[in-house]
Simulated scan of single mutants.
Amino acid sequence: MTVTTSPPTARTRQREEVSQQELVRYLEDRFACAQACDDCVRECAVRQGPAECGEGARLNTACADVCDATSRVLAEQSD
């Protein structure tokens, strides 16, 4: 069984380009989110001391980890 594919049309290439742009924008947003969460944890530690940040620091650290991991996995995808 042979599978033949037709060459990509201009419309298909345009959709792929838009999808790529959307992925890049999404990744940039996730990296920015991770950075903001890390900054919040640092600022809390400076203002209140590490022991006083409590649950907020833990949640911000977890959020940064999730955003960072998601971005890294998606950035490694070839398609």
Results as ranks from 00 to 15, higher is better:
L27M: 02
Q77H: 10
G49Q: 03
G54D: 11
A10C: 10
E16Q: 14
S78E: 08
L59E: 05
R58P: 04
T12I: 06
F31G: 05
P50L: 06
R58Y: 11
D65P: 03
E76R: 12
T12K: 05
Q48Y: 15
S78F: 05
R25V: 00
P8C: 01
T12C: 09
A10V: 08
A34T: 03
A57C: 13
D79Y: 12
D39R: 09
E16G: 07
P7C: 04
C67Y: 05
A32P: 07
R25K: 01
C33E: 09
P7S: 00
N60H: 13
V24D: 12
V73A: 02
N60D: 13
L27T: 06
A10Y: 00
A57E: 08
V46N: 11
Q21G: 03
C33N: 00
A32C: 04
E52N: 04
D29F: 06
S6W: 05
V3Y: 15
A36V: 08
V24M: 07
G54F: 03
T61K: 08
R11N: 10
T61M: 04
R42P: 01
D79H: 10
C63K: 06
V3F: 15
Y26L: 15
C40T: 15
Q14K: 06
T4R: 13
R15F: 11
E43I: 05
Q48F: 11
S71C: 11
D29C: 12
P7Q: 08
V46A: 13
T4Y: 14
L27D: 07
A64F: 10
R72C: 10
